[in-house]
Amino acid sequence: MVTIKVGALADSGDLYPFIPLMEGKIKPEGFNLEFEIIPTVQDINEAVLKKEVDVSVPSVAMYPYIQDDYYILSNAVATATDGITGMPILSIREMKEDEITKSRLIVHGQNTTAFTLYKLLIGRYGKLVIVRRVLDEIKALGKEGDVLVAVHEIKMMYALKKLGINVVKLGSMWDMWKNLSKGIPMPMGMVVFSKELGRELALKFKEVYEKSKKYAETHLDEIIPKDVEIMRESQKADIDEEIVRKTIWADIEEYNVPIDQVKRGLEFFYKVCEERGILPRVRNIDLI
């Protein structure tokens, strides 16, 4: 029996759909699953580029580099349709636009959607500062870097409040994206499946993933304690259960955007990024 290696991202919003499968609440038929918890988005991006995992959750911006090797699960594209998780740009002081473009910019990694959107929507920066772990970013703000693109806004704001750090919201990727795209949904992350395992197996995995996701969404009280446990261990931080709950609720909306809107977002994102020389051409968005 084939074993599918899943690289699960240690982020509550992307992790919750996998937990019922990890915990045996939902059981696949005809294949086995082997899970590896991967702590950061950039680590995920590098793992799929090297084809070290069969299933994982890379940045949408990573897809042009892996399009020949992975399918996209159409029921698993995290897509923003409002500003709730719209990637705010944070600083510890007020800044004018020309100051932002000369700032030390903190992002998760070079292949992340956050950094790609920054290049698309703002463009220039003074120095790039890579801080892979989510909650380590706030320790760098005002020290190693001046401006932060906060992908995990809810966790970020809560952690900043706990540390007594006051921040200024200079803008958001969502607001700028909305103006550029005329309101098209903004894609951020996706679940991909290795083409080496074939389309038939990919469709079977998609079906069991959907069952797992729906189970998690209707049994959050069962899922959240495990989510918190994984997050605390992987992020080496004291993650508050209520923040995990709020993060998951925000991501439930993102992971349940209608497929026609998801496709519009992906098509526009890849088209405009190619036109501006930010990403390679995507020949075909291989949604299954």
Score class of each variant (00 low, 15 high):
217 E>Y: 06
40 T>Q: 04
178 K>L: 04
249 W>D: 15
175 D>F: 04
107 V>E: 01
16 Y>N: 05
170 L>I: 07
265 G>Y: 02
1 M>I: 12
100 I>D: 03
86 G>T: 06
61 A>E: 02
267 E>G: 05
264 R>A: 09
106 I>V: 07
50 K>M: 15
195 K>Q: 08
19 I>C: 07
255 Y>Q: 01
213 K>W: 07
100 I>A: 00
201 L>A: 06
248 I>W: 02
46 E>G: 05
4 I>K: 01
107 V>Y: 03
152 H>S: 15
87 M>T: 13
161 K>M: 12
56 S>E: 01
215 Y>W: 14
137 E>A: 12
20 P>C: 00
47 A>T: 04
16 Y>V: 01
236 K>G: 09
151 V>C: 09
228 V>C: 10
149 V>N: 01
270 Y>S: 00
51 K>M: 14
243 I>F: 02
224 I>D: 01
57 V>W: 10
49 L>F: 12
35 F>P: 00
59 S>Q: 04
71 Y>S: 01
66 I>V: 11
43 D>L: 12
170 L>P: 01
15 L>P: 00
253 E>C: 11
105 L>R: 00
39 P>Q: 10
53 V>M: 11
241 E>M: 13
83 G>P: 07
5 K>G: 02
284 N>C: 15
209 Y>G: 02
251 D>S: 10
65 Y>A: 06
262 V>Y: 04
284 N>S: 15
281 R>P: 10
7 G>Y: 00
203 L>Y: 00
81 T>A: 12
129 V>I: 06
269 F>K: 05
268 F>W: 14
196 E>M: 14
220 L>E: 06
140 A>H: 07
53 V>I: 11
242 E>K: 13
15 L>I: 05
139 K>G: 12
254 E>P: 02
185 P>Q: 02
42 Q>P: 11
178 K>I: 07
211 K>N: 06
249 W>K: 15
232 R>P: 09
126 G>T: 03
265 G>F: 00
10 A>S: 12
169 K>D: 13
10 A>K: 03
266 L>T: 01
225 P>C: 12
160 L>E: 03
30 G>V: 05
85 T>S: 15
192 V>A: 04
139 K>R: 15
219 H>Q: 13
163 L>G: 15
193 F>D: 02
10 A>D: 08
124 R>N: 14
214 K>M: 13
223 I>A: 05
280 P>N: 09
77 V>F: 00
212 S>P: 01
273 C>I: 08
84 I>Q: 09
257 V>F: 09
274 E>V: 12
57 V>N: 14
